[in-house]
């Protein structure tokens, strides 16, 4: 389905519990409720909309393991393989013998890569980046209003949709 065929109408709500309850009601009435835009995270909304659980923490784990491996590899290469030094009576000729001193940097590198990797993934996946122009449906949708996005076809009877959405508690309807 191309973007041109997608058409959305919006129900504007002013209460989080009402909008969450409206999802089930409107869906049972045959409307395609696709999304809810809210000024703050609503506990259980993703479940109600049927969104899949995010896998971003798995990404963080993978980035973290990458950071851990890179740090160990770097220190092995620099301080053991390429130029071993004898410091404080502890010649660094074997990796495992120096390992206790390598732990702090390994840990920091793990956290560094996990945190930054995860946040970059989040920004890219959600397409929130400097310069992106937001699609503002209602001037107070980041303040105290909730926007429900409903997908309709070209020939849908919008008046009927509007009455259903308003019956479910919307204070305003936008098409």
């Amino acid at each position: 389905m191309s973007a041109a065929e997608k058409k959305f109408v919006y129900g504007i709500f002013n209460d989080d519990e009402v909008v969450v309850n409206a999802i089930g009601t409107l869906r049972s009435q045959g409307l395609k409720v696709k999304d809810v835009i809210s000024p703050f995270p609503i506990h259980g909304l993703d479940h109600e909309l049927g969104l899949a659980r995010t896998r971003i923490s798995i990404c963080a784990f993978i980035y973290g393991m990458t950071g851990l491996s890179l740090a160990l590899l770097m220190m092995y290469y620099m301080n053991i393989f390429d130029w071993a030094m004898d410091i404080g009576g502890k010649p660094s000729f074997a990796f495992y013998k120096n390992l206790p001193a390598f732990i702090p940097v390994t840990f920091e590198s793990t956290v560094l890569c996990a945190a930054h990797g995860m946040v970059i993934t989040f920004l890219l996946r959600s397409k929130i980046l400097p310069g992106v122009e937001p699609h503002i449906i209602h001037p107070r949708m980041a303040d105290d209003h909730f926007v429900m996005a409903i997908q309709v076809k070209e020939d849908t009877d919008l008046a009927k949709v509007e009455s259903l959405v308003k019956a479910a508690g919307a204070v305003e309807f936008k098409s």
Partner: peptide, 21 residues
Amino acid sequence: SFGWVGTAKNWQRFEEVSLVL
């Protein structure tokens, strides 16, 4: 604001990111 819109998916990721951070 990086063009932020508070869609359900954005908030879901946002909360997970905050928790993991």
